[in-house]
Design a binder for these strands. Structure first.
Length: 875
RNA sequence: GGGGGCAUAGCUCAGUUGGUUAGAGCGCACGCUUCACAUGCGUGAGGUCACAGGUUCGAGCCCUGUUGUCCCCACCA
């Protein structure tokens, strides 16, 4: 048989194993009517760069679930893909061109798109490679891209349907304009941050009077677009001015004083300049008061020709000059520092300008309602469910979705305008004739769609929708979506209302939400901070399995987690443990023919480990079904390390190195059985190393990836036997502790004397106890006083254990130690006693609990008696 | 202004429907060349579960309030 390397070295096999999985087509999702489908849609990573730690966690969770379900016999589709990330990618390409001294305009739309596709080819491929390094078991034969033919068709279809229903419209509204990217943004794409700014107080003269109205503004440059000043209708200070006309300084325009309840009389001066073209609230006031809309800024953030003498200036330069001019005119009253929330572009971080602009919108109210209902009615469940509140919060307060972007990289809006009659034509296919006038000069809308418009269709566009493909029928709706909470408003919400609208079904049954991966100090990992850690570097140093495990353990669903290399090390150490335990078993098996599990006589220790294995299988399966991956991983590491390695393997050594061939074979048979189960339980978490070790197991034909996940078998639960055996473990621990207490070297063999009623149990495990407790011999005594030697003693559930240690025994120290132990036991007695003395507890608590408490009390009382005896014996 | 998270060992965090003596990893102390593993083994120390009430036979967990801290949304020009 093959020899395993002495230490775990993932570099030697991870790539090799991934190749083998690929070669054997292990990730392919079959449409199999005999099987139940299980579908996960991978959130498509942007093609803008490379995977970060957040992706690594997201993908690991999905892969772990996919592998688990696959092993459970589901037909698993884990659909991979990448996102064109319209704005983000375009920003990158523009930067790249800038470095070459080129601009978008110079290369033109065609030339630009050529570059974009080249970019896509390069980076999408890179991301796929990174996903493979992690061990992702997605179906690569179905790799999708949000701008491939299939997805593009779905986008046109979706747009067309909404347009037909009147849910898509074009209009001039206040939108968020990014002067950096020169495009409109949706509300979700604006990030607010508290910026230090100022309040400038300006005086606007009242026409035909000596009076002024003083207003305060944070954006003086917008005053050139003012079309009114508003006051509260009930504000006595200004009532006489309502309806009067103001002379707007720096312009020759006259603007009215209007009354509107939007104004808060207590804030500022109680008078507000109204700039409908540059402020959402002002826009609303403008509509109510029928005010003109005067836009004074260009798309690039400079002032336009309506700004008079300030035309052509950058908005901030214009601001400075306007303030200076107002001061010259004696109209500047004062400047106050004022910090306020300012919106920034989520991609280029430029300050966003609210601007009136003609854009395409999706009417949200009719779409939001069913999306809310679906979660209320539990058709889709958030895990943890508190995230449903965030989801509701967004949908309940949602405004119409601005979907047009003044970009080139993306899905072009499927709308054409007739050059002859001006007709607007929305069509699935490129039209050639105007249906209204028959004209043939049609021009397509220049804009592209918000990236998220195509992402919203991902769960079904990838399956061939709008066609009723076999894939769509079999794999849709999907089972679980795994994603971070930060993406709920961008994506989850939009997939929900899109899925319901187009397919009449919720796109996924469960939404498993995870938190952010932060750095060691709890900061968000970000490029600007330079604190990001590259998952590939970690994989290079520790292996993909270690990274995966470290990202899943100690993490509660939905909570943020800190990434530390120490944690990866801990995972690596555990995997090394698995490696060496396996090596131990396989070395001992050697070329021997081991009888199959179930044909050998079981020793108490065997039943004990099998019992714990069954318990573990049950708990892990349950946790996995609830997507409690961290809990499942914890239970597994605990079982493997503590129960299997530290106890069971050590316990079997007596049999393995003993004379009795039957016992040796029996032990090996159980060792192999438990190891095989352990590997299969661990495989979803640490797929590479388990596959590698599995290949060394004798008599294995297939791969572990296609093996069955272990099943709980009630017949192998052995609960009573396992509990009894716990007393042996307790005994061994007691002896070890006694030796440490008196500074007896662990290697020094001691003679054990036991006063116990469980002689049979001890005899059955005699050699194991001797080995693990470091005992030369074990003898039974009828009473503790039968031994006339200086001893160290311990009291355990199984009875009293005496160890003659001659000169090592310090009577006083021993007395102290026993008294301390006595104190602890008395504490327990008091606790259990008072509980049982409480009539309400005895009557109302479950019977089992009361019985257990009684048994405990009896046990402690017995131990107390024995301890008293031991202390007395010291004299 | 609205909503939410978190507060448990020195550090980072688990704690599954309320029920054994509240756990893990790391760190710390002492001891170990025990023939799978020092990426290891053994034994320990370390917690008034933020605070104050309440519900309950029983609260780290449920309810109310307080404090601290972080996040999301909205936003007064």
């Amino acid at each position: 048989m093959k020899e395993m390397q002495t230490t775990y070295n993932p570099k030697l096999f991870e790539d090799k194993i991934y190749d083998e999985w690929m070669k054997k087509n292990c990730f392919h999702a079959e449409i199999d009517p005999q099987k139940v489908p299980f579908t996960i849609m991978m959130p498509p990573p942007n093609i803008t760069g490379q995977l970060h730690m957040g992706h690594a966690m997201d993908e690991t969770m999905q892969d772990t679930i996919a592998r688990f379900k696959r092993m459970q016999g589901y037909s698993v589709l884990w659909q991979p893909g990448t996102d064109h990330a319209s704005i983000a990618t375009e920003v990158k390409i523009v930067d790249q061109m800038k470095a070459e001294g080129l601009s978008k305009e110079e290369v033109g739309r065609e030339g630009f798109l050529e570059r974009a596709w080249a970019w896509k080819d390069k980076y999408a491929g890179r991301i796929v490679e990174q996903l493979k390094k992690l061990g992702s078991s997605c179906d690569w034969s179905r790799l999708a891209f949000t701008m491939d033919e299939r997805c593009s068709r779905a986008v046109r279809e979706a747009f067309f349907r909404l347009y037909q229903k009147g849910l898509i419209y074009r209009g001039s509204r206040i939108i968020n304009w990014c002067p950096g990217c020169k495009t409109a943004l949706s509300d979700a794409e604006v990030e607010y941050s508290e910026d230090a700014g100022f309040f400038w107080y300006f005086r606007y003269p009242v026409e035909g009077s000596e009076e002024y109205i003083t207003i305060a503004t944070t954006r003086p440059e917008t005053m050139l677009g003012d079309t009114a000043v508003a006051v509260h209708p009930d504000d006595a200070r200004y009532r006489h001015l309502v309806g009067k006309t103001l002379l707007l300084p720096l312009t020759d325009r006259k603007i009215p004083v209007v009354a509107d309840a939007y104004v808060d009389p207590a804030f500022g001066t109680g008078a507000v300049k109204i700039t409908p073209a540059h402020d959402p609230n002002d826009f609303e006031v403008g509509l109510r008061c029928n005010l003109p809309v005067i836009r004074v800024m260009n798309d690039d953030g400079t002032m336009n020709e309506l700004a008079g003498e300030f035309a052509g200036l950058d908005r901030y330069e214009a601001r400075k000059r306007i303030v200076a001019r107002m001061e010259e005119l004696g109209l500047l009253v004062k400047i106050e520092p004022h910090s306020h929330n300012v919106g920034h572009c989520y991609r280029c971080h430029a300050t966003v300008e609210p601007i009136v602009s003609k854009q395409w919108f999706v009417k949200m109210a009719p779409l939001a309602k069913p999306a809310i209902d679906a979660v209320v009615k539990n058709k889709t469940k958030f895990i943890p469910d508190r995230f449903a509140k965030i989801y509701y919060n967004w949908l309940e307060n949602i405004r119409d979705w601005c979907i047009s972007r003044q970009l080139w990289w993306g899905h072009r809006i499927p709308v054409w305008y007739c050059d002859d009659c001006g007709e607007t034509i929305c069509s699935r296919e490129t039209p050639t004739v105007c249906p209204k006038c028959g004209g043939t000069h049609l021009t397509q809308d220049e804009d592209v769609l918000d990236t998220w418009f195509s992402s919203a269709l991902w769960p079904f566009s990838t399956l061939g929708w709008p066609e009723e493909t076999p894939e769509f029928k079999y794999f849709y709706p999907t089972d679980v979506l795994v994603t971070g909470y930060d993406i709920i408003p961008f994506w989850v919400m939009r997939m929900m209302f899109s899925g319901i609208e187009y397919t009449k079904k919720v796109p996924f049954r469960d939404v498993l939400i995870h938190g952010l991966v932060r750095d060691e100090q709890g900061r968000k990992m970000s490029k600007s901070l330079g604190n990001g850690i590259d998952p590939l570097q970690i994989i290079d140093a520790y292996g993909a399995d270690s990274l995966r495990l470290s990202l899943l353990t100690g993490v509660a669903p939905g909570n943020d987690t800190r990434f530390t290399e120490t944690k990866v090390e801990a995972s690596r150490n555990f995997i090394n443990k698995v490696w060496n335990a396996s090596r131990f078993v396989l070395m001992n098996v050697g070329d021997e023919k081991i009888p199959p599990f179930g044909t050998c006589k079981l020793q108490p220790a065997d039943r004990w480990i099998i019992s714990h294995l069954m318990q573990t299988i049950r708990e892990v399966t349950l946790a996995m079904q609830k997507y409690d991956l961290g809990i499942a991983a914890d239970k597994l590491t605990d079982f493997v390390w503590n129960d299997f390695c530290d106890w069971y393997i050590e316990l079997t050594k007596a049999s393995l190195y003993g004379e009795d061939r039957e016992k040796r074979q029996g032990a090996l048979s159980v060792l192999l059985y438990v190891l095989d189960n352990i590997l299969r339980l661990l495989h979803p978490f640490i797929p590479f190393v388990t596959e590698e070790i599995y290949s060394y197991l004798p008599g294995k034909k297939g791969l572990i990836i296609t093996a069955e996940f272990p099943h709980y078998n009630a017949k192998l639960a052995y609960r009573r036997e396992a509990a009894a055996f716990d007393e042996i473990i307790e005994l061994i621990k007691a002896v070890r502790a006694m030796k440490v207490a008196v500074n007896c070297p662990p290697s020094r063999k001691v003679h054990l004397y036991l006063v116990t009623e469980s002689k049979r149990l001890v005899n059955a495990n005699r050699s194991s106890v001797q080995r693990l407790a470091g005992a030369s011999e074990i003898d039974f005594l009828a009473s503790t006083s039968d031994l006339n030697e200086k001893t160290v003693s311990g009291v355990a559930s199984i009875g009293t254990v005496l160890v003659p240690l001659g000169e090592l025994v310090d009577i006083e120290a021993e007395r102290k130690r026993l008294n301390k132990e006595l104190e602890r036991i008395e504490g327990e007695i008091a606790r259990a006693g008072s509980k049982l003395a409480n009539n309400n507890f005895v009557m109302k608590a479950p019977k089992k609990l009361v019985e257990d408490e009684r048994a405990k009390l009896d046990k402690f009382l017995d131990m107390k008696t024995k301890l008293h005896q031991q202390i007395k014996d010291l004299d």
